[in-house]
């Protein structure tokens, strides 16, 4: 806008021949590009390795020594994947008569046993009187060395 005497003259931008230009928002650096850029990979993550199924994964803490023989010690962290079908010989977290327990499943024709791996503990025979939910299959044990 310029003021010439008592008249005001408006200048308008030229809309007709608008040239578009690229806005480099990330900035352009003039140095030598990193030779490693083309080889970038994701850093190793335990989470990605251990959790195959985020929505079905739960964690539990071992309490006691009933599964010592299978390498599950008191205080260890268990990774449980509920998307896996429970099968014979799998280690599973079970909910039996109102309590959580971790044992190896032994499926026989007409009954299920929850097998400890420590001679001090007895197998649990699941009968009709018990209320059993096989809560989820254990996939990994995380322990502090």
């Amino acid at each position: 806008m310029s003021n010439t005497g008592d008249k005001i003259v408006f200048f308008q931008p030229d809309q007709e021949r608008r040239k578009s230009s690229y806005l480099a928002q990330e900035g352009i650096s003039a140095g030598f590009p990193s030779p490693a850029d083309d080889f970038k990979e994701l850093r190793i993550s335990i989470d990605r390795e251990v959790v195959k199924n985020e929505e079905a994964t739960f964690y539990a803490r071992v309490s006691g020594e009933s599964m010592q023989g299978a390498g599950l010690d008191d205080g260890d962290l268990l990774v449980i994947d509920r998307s896996l079908e429970p099968q014979d010989n799998k280690i599973a977290v079970c909910f039996i008569d109102g309590e959580f327990t971790v044992k190896r499943l032994k499926v026989e024709e007409d009954c299920v046993y929850l097998m400890p791996e420590n001679s001090k503990y007895k197998p649990i025979k699941v009968t009709e009187d018990n209320q059993l939910i096989i809560w989820g299959v254990v996939t990994y044990v995380v322990k502090k060395v």
């Binding site: 739960f58 964690y59 539990a60 803490r61 071992v62 309490s63 009933s66 959580f100 327990t101 971790v102």
Partner: peptide, 13 residues
């Protein structure tokens, strides 16, 4: 808070 707090996850015997 079984799924959001490490100290509160389930304990299994």
């Amino acid at each position: 808070r079984f799924t959001t707090e490490m100290n509160e996850i389930i304990r299994v015997k």
